[in-house]
Design a protein around this nucleic acid. Sequence first.
DNA 1: AACTCCGGCAACCGCCAACTC
DNA 2: TGAGTTGGCGGTTGCCGGAGT
Length: 250
Amino acid sequence: MVRAPCCDKSNVKKGPWSPDEDNTLINYIHKHGTGGNWITLPRLKRCGKSCRLRWLNYLRPDVKHGGFSEEEDNIICSLYSILGSRWSIIAAQLPGRTDNDIKNHWNTKLKKKLFTAKIEGGNNEITTTISAAPFCKAVGSNGSSSTTSSSYMTDLKTYQQKYYEYPALVLDQTNQFSMPYLPFENNYGAAWCSNGVGNERQGMMDHFVDFEVDPQHVLSGSSFQEENINGVGDDPWFGIVSATHYNIFD
DNA sequence: AACTCCGGCAACCGCCAACTC
DNA sequence: TGAGTTGGCGGTTGCCGGAGT
């Protein structure tokens, strides 16, 4: 009871797609859809995976190419600061953009842009790390605090494993620290910051709780100034307090 | 004009989780 | 239940065109 392999690797065409191949693929999908099965797609001498990639990244009618706006750049950088290189999740927040496109854009432009901004900033904060804290799992679906100490610790372990390079937060055009902008509907996504006194994890947790239960700290689609938050120090930490409805860390 | 270098991007590769038989 | 298949993802490669020399 064994299925046929997805393609005969020795007889599979690679490299750039020709207009003919594109047309064949487009016509087929318009006629039949993908049916969730890329392997049975048109009899191009292409691997099913290659067909899927070509359609999703290039041929799909709603896909946008290039021309990233400032706002899109900001969203990408903010989400990168939180999620790291989880391009598919980041792409899900940007209609018409593909993970591949965003990844390329980050690697070729944004990374350098932020690095340059960091150098120009020229302060000790350069060496600071930020972290992405999947605390969302520990927050009630209505945004209220329902965290238990055990789930706290589970998430803390994940949290401690997820450190990212600093630069993504230098984005703020006013040259101040700003919290990542989280473009989630209904703003269930919210950012959190602490001064991370002495790099104490417990210290950060305290700030997290303070922040979480205080509605005025919940983002409403704008960036968040450092002075709005309890902890103001030279060793800031950033994270998410809630993004519960989206399960973005699952 | 010829050559080299470099940036941008499409496509491939390999891994892994989910699914199927 | 386990082996094999498939789809999805992130990392990487390699081609192409433009800029610089």
